[in-house]
């Protein structure tokens, strides 16, 4: 239990997936104009990453590792994730209309989000068992949500600021993210 908690805090805050590992940077910079959409994106990412890390861990433990096919992990994981996202989208569309309406638009964007594949591969690299993988996946995604919501909040506040013309758009967002990254460095004292 204690190790699980430490892993969760480490992946959510200390080694934040966006701000210190640079995974999932594209949605982080792209879908962070408004807090509401950022929160929606975050929820979709939590959903998909938790599910994907569970499925990937199961496949690795019961299919790839016993048959000596561990070197196929990259190919298998990316295909599983792509299929999983499609499947989740279809499932939500059919059975959970309200959830689909809030998460649906973000789901296709997640397929090639490197955070999903990144978490699945990290779990294998650190040889986590299935439960630990799920916890790690959930915590990583929670870290993503925390940082994207904070960034969206800052961007809403600074939207009408007088930024030098060359820095408008992407550059100032990156500087904001850099300052956030400095702040998140402070969490490394937690563990």
């Amino acid at each position: 239990m204690k190790t699980l908690l430490i892993i969760a805090v480490a992946s959510a805050l200390v080694n934040n997936v966006v701000l210190s590992q640079f995974l999932g940077l594209c949605p982080f910079l792209g879908v962070s104009k408004k807090v509401k959409t950022a929160a929606g994106m975050g929820a979709a990412v939590v959903f998909v990453i938790t599910l994907a890390s569970a499925v990937a861990a199961v496949i690795y433990q019961f299919v790839l590792a016993p048959n000596g096919l561990a070197y196929l992990e990259t190919i298998v994981f990316i295909l599983v994730i792509a299929a999983l996202v499609q499947f989740v989208e279809m499932f939500l569309k059919k059975y959970m209309k309200s959830l689909y309406q809030s998460l649906g638009v973000y789901l296709p964007l997640i397929t090639t989000n490197c955070a999903v594949l990144g978490v699945a591969l990290t779990n294998v690299q650190k040889s986590y068992d299935i439960l630990t993988s799920v916890v790690n996946g959930f915590a990583t995604a929670a870290g993503f949500t925390i940082s994207i919501v904070i960034l969206a909040g800052i961007r809403e506040k600074t939207e009408h600021n007088d930024v030098p013309e060359s820095f408008r758009g992407m550059p100032i967002t990156m500087i904001t993210a850099g300052l956030m990254a400095i702040a998140f460095c402070g969490f490394s004292g937690l563990l």
Partner: peptide
């Protein structure tokens, strides 16, 4: 990590 954001921000600003 933060340095990466700063360097890239300045490069993109220069490109702009």
């Amino acid at each position: 990590a933060p340095g990466a954001f700063f360097v890239l921000a300045f490069i993109i600003a220069a490109m702009n």
